[in-house]
């Protein structure tokens, strides 16, 4: 028995090293399953505060870019409103949408307090949380297009899985002819992503616009994702390899809107019902 203790004592450094590495690996592997609620929620509270104060200072440096982005978005929105004849030119100069319109989407504005583009799994931290109505799995739009999806929420902060995360993809389609596929990031360049599952017979052009398909309840249909930068047929594959230039400049994301789909519980319940029916999928 003593010799066992002595053995442990003599090798306590190696044993402690292996123990700590195992703890580290368990944390990394449990992360791989994407269910990390415990970790992120505990961290969002403490670190969110620090990031919040920090970004309050650094945001000043981005003001001119943000200003431009917001102005461009305003112009775009006004244009689409005009297209739908919702502005009554004669009565008022202020754009006005009837609040009771069937819109099941509700937008919560938020500010980015932490962001990264240089890792394989990038996340965005927002300065709003459960208190402001944000829940996990809500979509996040920047002024230029789709930015990500909410993964974890604390009381006053939330963590968003950025588009720039190799474990996430979004259902996308070609705006021109409605063929759909999935948009994934390959972890290489923060400006480009890949569109998969577009078969060879589809007619493509460089510069085609890619938008959300609206098949998931996370994003409404037609939110901008990017434009086709280049595409090629790879031997032995059934699908095009399409490189998409993302419409969002992830280095300059400052203000975002979180999408609350009011009809989502209804939709999810319905889809669950039909899945239970067949079970094989």
């Amino acid at each position: 028995m003593w010799s066992l203790f002595r053995y442990f004592y003599r090798h306590h450094v190696v044993i402690l090293f292996l123990f700590l590495e195992i703890v580290g690996f368990i944390l990394i592997f449990s992360y791989n399953s994407f269910q990390r609620a415990g970790f992120i929620n505990s961290s969002a509270h403490i670190t969110g505060n620090i990031y919040d104060r920090y970004s309050a200072i650094t945001d000043y440096f981005n003001l001119s870019i943000v200003n431009r982005q917001l102005a461009e978005e305003n112009a775009r929105l006004r244009e689409s409103l005009l297209a739908q004849n919702r502005i009554d030119d004669s009565t008022s100069t202020i754009a006005f949408i009837k609040p009771d319109s069937t819109g099941s989407y509700h937008f919560i504005p938020a500010r980015v307090i932490n962001n990264s583009v240089n890792r394989q799994h990038n996340f965005i931290t927002l300065n709003k949380g459960a208190r402001h109505g944000i829940r996990p799995d809500m979509g996040v739009l920047s002024t230029q297009g789709v930015a990500g999806v909410v993964s974890h929420v604390s009381d006053s902060y939330s963590v968003v899985i950025s588009m720039l995360n190799i474990r996430w993809n979004v259902s996308a389609k070609l705006k021109r002819n409605n063929y759909f596929g999935s948009l994934t990031w390959d972890g290489k360049d923060y400006r480009y992503a890949l569109l998969n599952e577009i078969p060879f017979h589809v007619d493509l052009m460089e510069g085609d616009t890619i938008v959300t398909s609206g098949f998931s309840s996370i994003f409404p249909e037609g939110m901008p994702l990017g434009i086709i930068e280049s595409f090629k047929k790879e031997g032995g594959d059934n699908f095009y390899q399409i490189r998409v230039q993302l419409s969002v400049d992830f280095k300059a994301v400052t203000y975002v809107e979180v999408i609350d789909n009011r009809k989502r519980p209804e939709l999810d319940a319905l889809e669950k019902l039909s899945n239970n029916g067949k079970d094989l999928d």
Binding site: F17, G24, F25, L27, I28, S43, T47, S116
Partner: peptide, 20 residues
């Protein structure tokens, strides 16, 4: 560092190796 970067265990394991 993991706390701030949302990468549980990654920096901890790497730095433990460095310490060893």
């Amino acid at each position: 560092i993991d706390f701030f970067t949302d990468t549980p265990g990654l920096h901890a394991a790497a730095t433990t190796l460095l310490g060893y």
